[in-house]
């Protein structure tokens, strides 16, 4: 029984860490504000959530478990809300998502500028 719990929590911790790292890479590499925010949102909810669940499985003390549950609930509540507010503020202040046309245009511009 113990070994199953350890393996499960290890798996969850691993997947959570992978999601956090991929979120960080996405933050650096995605083209515009909204896709970047999506990457951060993945880190916020799923990555942190999986790590917390993995830690919950390992916890032997009930108090630690309860604290982790509360942290999980708060992250689940706050993460999406902050993402929503951030996106709303950005849209309100005139940041528009890059669509494919825009991307092509900017690429063309880059090409022309490099040629020049």
């Amino acid at each position: 029984m113990d070994i199953i719990i350890t393996i499960c929590s290890g798996f969850l911790l691993l997947v959570g860490s992978f999601l956090c790292i991929s979120g960080g890479i996405g933050l650096l590499r995605f083209p515009d504000f909204y896709t970047r925010m999506h990457a951060v949102g993945v880190t916020d909810t799923l990555g942190a959530g999986m790590i917390l669940v993995g830690l919950m499985m390992l916890s032997t003390d009930f108090l630690v478990f309860a604290k982790l549950v509360m942290v999980l609930l708060f992250t689940l509540l706050i993460g999406p809300t902050t993402s929503h507010v951030l996106a709303k503020a950005a849209f309100h202040n005139g940041v528009r998502p890059k669509d494919s046309n825009n991307l092509e245009q900017s690429k063309e511009k880059e090409n022309t500028s490099s040629i020049l």
Binding site: F74, L77, I78, T81, H84, V85
Partner: peptide, 15 residues
Amino acid sequence: QHLVIRIVAKMLIPF
């Protein structure tokens, strides 16, 4: 305009 964040904040402020 700020419906979502207002409701979430209302839930969180007591905590």
